[in-house]
Measured scan of single mutants.
Amino acid sequence: SISSRVKSKRIQLGLNQAELAQKVGTTQQSIEQLENGKTKRPRFLPELASALGVSVDWLLN
């Protein structure tokens, strides 16, 4: 799922939720909701993929 991929990649990069949120241009709460499965397809998906160094396709599939 996107939530597990985001969380595992974030941890692999040594980032906390607030640091990832800053790179993406969103809030820590938005990252938390995404990782908890409350958000399925965030509006900041391209920025998120870029910050994590992955493709949008990788996040979604």
Rank of each mutant, 00 (worst) to 15 (best):
R5V: 07
K38G: 12
K38F: 15
S30Y: 15
V56R: 04
Q29Y: 11
E32F: 06
S3M: 06
K38M: 15
N36W: 06
S3T: 06
P46L: 14
S1H: 11
T26I: 12
L48V: 06
Q17H: 10
G37W: 03
S3G: 15
K23N: 07
K38Q: 13
V54A: 04
L13S: 06
T27L: 06
Q12I: 08
G37N: 07
T39G: 11
Q22R: 11
S4H: 13
A21M: 01
V56W: 07
T39W: 07
N61F: 10
G14D: 06
T39D: 13
L52E: 01
N16T: 15
L13Y: 03
P46C: 14
K23D: 04
L48R: 00
K9Y: 03
S50L: 14
S30N: 13
R43G: 13
G37Y: 03
T27F: 04
S55W: 04
E35S: 01
E35F: 00
N16Y: 03
L45Y: 05
P42C: 12
P42Y: 09
E19V: 05
R5W: 03
S50F: 12
L48G: 00
K38S: 14
A49L: 04
N36G: 10
R10P: 02
A21K: 02
K40W: 12
A18F: 13
Q33H: 13
G25C: 09
G25Q: 06
K23T: 09
I11L: 14
V6H: 00
W58H: 05
L48D: 00
E47A: 13
I11T: 10
K9T: 10
N16F: 03
Q12A: 13
I11E: 14
I2W: 04
S50N: 14
I31C: 04
N36I: 10
Q33S: 14
T39A: 10
A49D: 01
W58S: 04
P42A: 09
S3C: 11
L45W: 05
K7W: 01
W58F: 08
Q28L: 14
N61G: 15
S8P: 02
V24S: 07
G25T: 02
E19D: 15
L48E: 00
V6T: 08
L15H: 04
V56A: 08
S4V: 11
L48T: 02
A21S: 05
L20P: 02
G37P: 03
E35G: 01
Q28H: 10
L34K: 01
K40P: 15
Q22P: 02
L13P: 01
D57A: 09
S55Y: 05
L13H: 07
E35A: 01
P46D: 13
L48H: 00
K23H: 08
S50W: 10
G53Y: 03
T27K: 07
R5E: 03
R5Q: 06
G25H: 07
R41A: 12
R43L: 15
K9G: 05
F44Q: 05
L59G: 03
G37Q: 06
Q17M: 11
D57P: 04
L60Y: 09
R5T: 05
S30V: 13
L48Y: 02
N36K: 11
D57W: 09
A18H: 12
T27Y: 03
G25W: 00
A21R: 01
I31M: 05
A49H: 00
K9I: 13
V24W: 02
K9M: 14
P42M: 09
Q12Y: 08
R43D: 13
E19A: 08
V6L: 06
G37K: 05
Q22W: 08
L59C: 01
W58G: 03
G53M: 06
G14A: 05
R5G: 03
T39K: 10
K23Q: 10
T39Q: 11
L20Q: 02
T26W: 05
G53F: 04
S50A: 14
A51Q: 07
R10D: 02
S55L: 07
A21P: 02
G53D: 09
Q29P: 07
E35C: 03
R43K: 15
V56T: 10
N61M: 10
V6D: 02
Q28D: 06
S3H: 10
G25E: 04
F44A: 04
A21W: 00
L20E: 03
S1T: 14
I31A: 02
L13M: 12
P46G: 11
K23C: 11
S50M: 12
S4G: 11
V54W: 01
V54K: 02
E32I: 12
E47Q: 14
E35T: 01
T26P: 01
Q17N: 04
Q17F: 07
F44V: 03
Q12E: 15
G14P: 02
Q28F: 07
S3R: 08
K38H: 14
G53H: 08
W58L: 04
Q22Y: 10
L60K: 09
S3F: 02
Q33R: 14
F44T: 03
Q28C: 10
N16H: 07
A49I: 04
S4D: 15
S1Y: 09
A21L: 01
K38N: 15
V6P: 02
Q33E: 15
P46I: 13
S3I: 06
L60S: 09
L59H: 00
T27G: 06
L15C: 07
V54Q: 03
Q33L: 14
K40Y: 12
K38A: 14
A51E: 06
N61P: 08
L34H: 01
L52K: 00
I31Q: 01
E32A: 13
D57M: 07
L34A: 03
E19H: 05
V6F: 00
E32Q: 11
I2E: 03
V24E: 01
N36R: 11
K23Y: 07
R10G: 02
K9A: 13
E32K: 12
A49Q: 01
S4L: 11
I11D: 07
G37D: 09
N16V: 05
N36M: 11
Q33F: 13
T26F: 03
D57N: 09
Q12C: 10
W58R: 02
L34Q: 01
Q22A: 15
L20R: 00
K7S: 09
A51K: 04
S3D: 07
S4I: 12
S1N: 13
G53L: 05
S55K: 08
L15M: 14
G53K: 06
E19M: 07
P42H: 09
T27I: 06
N16R: 05
I11F: 06
S50C: 11
K7T: 10
P46T: 13
I31F: 02
L13D: 04
Q28W: 08
S30L: 13
Q28G: 07
A18I: 12
K7I: 13
S30P: 02
S8T: 12
A18K: 12
E19P: 00
V6I: 11
L59E: 02
L20V: 05
P42Q: 05
L15I: 11
R10N: 02
L60E: 10
E35D: 02
S55I: 05
G25M: 05
L20H: 01
G14R: 03
Q33W: 14
D57E: 11
A51M: 06
V54F: 03
L13R: 07
K38D: 15
A51S: 07
L34V: 14
S1A: 10
V56C: 10
L34F: 08
L60F: 08
F44N: 08
R41Q: 13
L52N: 00
Q29R: 13
L45A: 07
Q12F: 09
G25F: 03
L20I: 06
E35I: 02
K38T: 15
L59D: 02
E19Q: 12
V6A: 08
L45D: 01
S55A: 08
I2R: 03
E32N: 10
I2F: 10
N36E: 12
P46A: 14
G53C: 07
G37R: 05
W58M: 04
L59P: 03
K7F: 03
S1D: 15
A51C: 06
S55P: 09
E32D: 11
A18N: 11
Q22H: 11
V24Q: 00
Q29W: 10
E47M: 09
I11M: 12
V54R: 01
L52C: 03
S3P: 08
S30F: 13
S50Y: 10
S50P: 04
Q22T: 11
Q12T: 07
S30Q: 15
S55M: 07
R43P: 13
N61T: 08
G53S: 06
P42F: 12
N36P: 01
I31V: 06
I11A: 09
V24M: 06
Q12P: 00
S1M: 11
V54M: 05
A21Q: 01
S55V: 05
K23G: 05
L20S: 01
Q33C: 12
S4Q: 14
E35W: 00
V24K: 00
T27C: 08
R10S: 04
Q12N: 09
G37C: 07
L13W: 02
N36V: 10
W58Q: 05
